[in-house]
Amino acid sequence: MIENRPWLTFVSHATLLTGIALVALPVWMALVASTHPASAFGVGHIPLWFGDAGAETWGAVLFDKAGNGVDVPVWFMMLNSLIMALGITFGKIAISLLSAYAIVFFRFPFRNLCFWIIFMTLMLPVEVRIVPTYEVVANLDLLNSYTGLTLPLIASATATFLFRQCFLSIPGELVEAARMDGAGPWRFFFDILLPLSRTNIAALFVILFIYGWNQYLWPLLITTDDAYYTLVMSIKRMLSVTDGDIAWNQIMATTLLAMLPPVAVVIGMQKLFVKGLVDSEK
């Protein structure tokens, strides 16, 4: 639709700018806050421009221990978060690729039943099954471990469904041509299927990485050892101060750091992400 009406242009730009301001203002506030001393927030007015305590705050956040019972520095928790997020992402992609592959391309009894059972797990996110899952993980002696952080979150009905749809859209002739070319199940999977679902994998990577990075409840529950603390759950811990001031400047800086990796992933993979959602080159 191409229209040339000045007032329409004005209104749409105004709407967009308001939207951007609404989204960006809190981020801006956090950035500004991280450059003021912690006490600046207790005095009633909120600063809107950078202060002079920036270097000090950021230095402390990055390299000192986070405090408030968190015995490891922020960069270490970022590393933990990254390991968890990547573990969940790659685990989910690998498992759902394989299950979708089995469901779409192999004839075995109760194939459809399997699919619907997987599909029904959509109704059982971690929050619903958290007590039994905890029990299982505890019995397997996986509390305070990376395996315990990632494994229970790896099964994914959504991703399986997405890959199933993607595989179903691959023409039957292509599968047959590969068969004539002597490609067995593994060859077909790696040579044909994986390259063809490249864009879908990229799109899922973005979504799942953010999902994994933002995990809060699960890591909070199963980690008691500081060495496995993740960043997102620790922000809450940094807030629970029983005496003394809350270090708002440090918390804001930590929050910004926690936002950084998802933003980087989205920006870095934006092109593939959009492509994966809207078109397929089949």
Binding site: P171, E173, E176, A178, L196
Partner: peptide, 8 residues
């Protein structure tokens, strides 16, 4: 019929 060339 539809050639079935590997698109990638």
């Amino acid at each position: 019929q539809n050639y079935a060339l590997y698109p990638h």
